[in-house]
Design a protein around this nucleic acid. Sequence first.
RNA 1: UCCGGCGUAGCUCAAUGGUAGAGUAGGUGACUGUUAAUCACUUGGUUGCUGGUUCGAGCCCAGCCGCCGGAGCCA
Length: 461
Amino acid sequence: MVRDEIRTVLSSGTPGETVTVAGWIKSLRRSKTVGFMHLNDGSCFDSIQVLIEPTLENGDEVSAQITGASMLVTGVLRESPAKGQAIEIVPTQVDVIGTCDSSSPVQKAGTSFEFLREVAHMRPRTNSLGALFRVRSKLSFIVHSFFNERGFVHAHTPILTTSDCEGAGEMFQVTTLDMDAPPRREDNAIDYQKDFFGEKCSLTVSGQLEGELLASSLAKVYTFGPTFRAENSNTARHASEFWMIEPEIAFADLQDDIALAEEFTKYMIENLLTRCERDLQFFDQRIEKGLLDKLRAVLESDFAVMEYTDAVDALRKSGRDFEFPTDWGRSLQTEHERFICENITKRPTFVVNYPKRIKPFYMYCNDDDRTVACFDMLVPRVGELIGGSQREHRLDILQARMLEHQMDLESYKWYLDLRRFGSVPHAGFGLGFERTLMYVTGMENIRDVVLCPRVPGNAKF
RNA sequence: UCCGGCGUAGCUCAAUGGUAGAGUAGGUGACUGUUAAUCACUUGGUUGCUGGUUCGAGCCCAGCCGCCGGAGCCA
C-alpha cells in the first residue's frame, strides 16, 4: 500500500501537494454541511485533519464511521483556516479499510490505565500508550547509540542459564522433563542429569557475570536484554519479565564507573528531549506535571557523590522522623534515598561504599574491610535508578567472599578463572529499562510501559 | 507474601437497609470551520461470585475471586 506517513505530511507537507494517508480515526465530527475526521497512523503523536464535505462521493459511508475505524485517504493539502492545525487534507477519495464496532474498548476519552491493561491488545491506540511505545523504542535505540559511539561491544548474554548469579531472586525453571513423572535418583530427588542440559536450568536473572566474561577480553561491553524474576512481588515497579542494561568495563575502578553512569544518564535524557519532543510534551502535560523541568534539571546538574557513612550521618542529623531506622549497616529505604537527593544534596547523587554485609559477593572489598566499592545513583522523586560496583578481581578475596555466601565454587569455576588468567580491575552497573522509562515519562506503573506485561498471576496477551 | 482500599451501564463514577442514577460512549435528529464540539431525544444493568442476616440487601456479615495502593524483595 503506497502511502505517506502522517508524521512526514505534518512536518514537511506543503499546500497544494497531493498525499495519500492511512490511519485510524481518532475522532469524527460531522454535520450536514461539513465534518472533520482526525486520522492517526502511529508515526507521530499528532493526527491529521481530513475535511468531510457533502460533495464527497461516499460521504454517508464515511460519516457513519466511528473512532477506531481504519481509513485510506487521498487528497490535497491546504492551509487550515481554523486554529488547531496548520494543515489539513481536502480529500478526493476516502476509503474505509476496516470498520470499527461500537463495542471497541478504546474510545475518545475517559478511561483508566487499569482498564486498558485488560485490553492490552488495543491500548496502543490511545494517546498515552502510543506515545509510550514510541518513546520506549527511541530510548532503546539511544541506549545502543551511547555504547556504540564509545566503542562498546554489545554482548548477547544467554537467556537460559545453569548458574543462579548473585542469587538475585527466585528463578523460573526451564525443563523438558515430564513433570508428572520426572526421573528420580536413589534418594528420590529429581534427577536433573536426565534433563535437557544435564543439569537444572533457569531463565537468567542478570547478564552481569557473562558480561564480565566478555569484558575480560574485549574490555568495554554491555548487555541489553530480557531478564526474569519469579519473585511474588506485586507492586507498581516489579515485573516478572523486564529488560536490563548492564555495561561492564575492564581496567576501571569505581570512579570510572560513576563517571560512565552520569554520562550515560545525561546522554539518554538529552537525546530523548530532542528526539521525542512532542511525546514528552504530552507526558509533561497529562501524566506528570513538571516532567520536562525535572529532566532538564538532571541534565544541567553536576551529580553529587556521598559516602554511605556520611549519608547515614546526614539522615540522622536531619531531625526528620523516618519510618525506618537509619543505623549504619542497614539498607537505605526509598524514603531515605529520596530525602538524600531531594533535601540534602538537592540533585542526583551517587551514594558510594555501602557496608559489605548487605551487598552481593562480587563487589570489590575496600581497604577498611567493612565496605565495598559500589554505588547507588539516586534521583529526585524516584530514589535508586542505577546500581553499580567495582568487581572483586582478586582471586583469594573473591573465593573467601563466595564461601561466606555458601556458594559452590566448582560451578563458578569459569567465573574464578577470569581472576586466574590475567585478572584486571573492572566495574559495571545495571539499570532496569522499564524503570528508566517510567522515570522519563512519569508513568507510574510498570505494567503500562511494557507491551504485554508479565506479573505474578498474569501473563495474558 | 503482609497491611489497607475498591468491585454498580461499554467506560468514569453516584445512590441513610426501602422503585438502580448521572456524565460519557453508542443510536436518532438538529446545528456548527469543528478540534475531548454543542443541543434535544434515546438504547443500555444477573450491582464480581457463593452463602448468610432481614419483611426487604448495591449497602450489613462470612468465604472466595479479581483489581488498585503501600510494605517487603529488588531492577
